[in-house]
Design a protein around this nucleic acid. Structure first.
Length: 267
DNA sequence: GCGACAG
DNA sequence: ATCTTGTCGC
């Protein structure tokens, strides 16, 4: 019993063949990726014309790796008030594997987006912040890119932890961890994550003066890195930008009420 | 070969 | 991602 496969609770297997196929899909879809501003509002200081911002996230039920709550919220800009929330209980098909997060999470998120599109197109978000990386990825095609391309909507990737990329010591975990603490001294400070090849994958950003740990911002789709960073900073009331923070709160809240119902029905 | 590894 | 209370400080 010696295997290099990852087996999820529902029996699906991810072997080297599957990985290879997924890698090809990422490379193929990447040809459709747009890394420049292709948005319906201005990039001036006020972001004139920007009114609706989306956020997506998944939360998990403890003791169960396959069942999750996917949520989508729409906030107003610049007030950042919640205008719309939707969530869906989903059962995931594949386990989490670094570099292949999209194959686990993209389907339910896409479903929430298309649902909003048909239900209330008038408040459809002008971009969506995704809980996970975009081009800050070994093949420069993380979840935020994947979702952006499939939905054809501008997206920004925001990760809470750094994903190691194989492109020189500059992008090694220890180096980034050190430099990041050294360079990011106040809210709004930015450190570009550039590999030995010269590629800029994304940036470590300090959200606020009051928070030390950076967030990792990268291009998702149809937004340049610098615009993405400016937008994310405008969305930060706390370390995590409001769109994904509210989406996270939304799905956790649902899980909490589910647990309460269980207690009541079993007692 | 061994460890690292978004959520 | 999730398991988890208090606690130190502005």
């Amino acid at each position: 019993m010696h295997e290099e496969e990852k087996i999820s609770d529902n029996g699906d297997i991810v072997d080297d063949v599957q990985r290879e196929e997924w890698m090809q899909q990422q490379i193929t879809l990447k040809s459709r990726l747009i890394e420049t501003d292709d948005i319906s509002f201005s990039t001036d200081n006020e972001f004139t014309g920007l009114r609706y911002i989306g956020g997506v996230d998944l939360s998990f039920v403890k003791d169960n790796n396959n069942d999750a709550i996917a949520s989508l919220v729409v906030l107003t800009y610049p007030a950042l008030e919640i205008l719309y929330t939707d969530y869906q209980k989903v059962s995931l098909d594949y386990p989490y594997i670094a570099g292949f997060l999209a194959f686990r999470e993209v389907a339910p998120l896409l479903s929430l987006i298309t649902s909003l599109q048909s239900k209330q197109p008038s408040i459809f978000p002008q971009f969506i912040i995704v809980d996970g990386n975009g081009t800050l990825h070994p093949r420069q095609f993380g979840l935020a890119c994947h979702l952006g391309v499939l939905a054809d909507v501008p997206t920004i990737g925001v990760g809470k932890n750094f994903l190691q990329i194989d492109d020189g010591v500059e992008l090694s975990m220890p180096h980034v961890k050190k430099v990041t603490k050294d360079v990011l001294k106040k809210g709004g400070d930015v450190y570009y994550l550039k590999g030995q090849s010269g590629t800029v994958y994304g940036a470590a950003v300090r959200s606020l003066d009051t928070t030390t740990n950076p967030i990792f911002v990268s291009v998702g789709h149809r937004i340049s890195l610098d615009t993405a960073i400016r937008l994310v900073l405008r969305c930060c009331k706390y370390r995590i930008p409001e769109p994904t923070r509210q989406a996270d709160i939304c799905s956790r809240e649902f899980i909490r009420t589910q647990n309460l119902e269980k207690r009541q029905s079993s007692s």
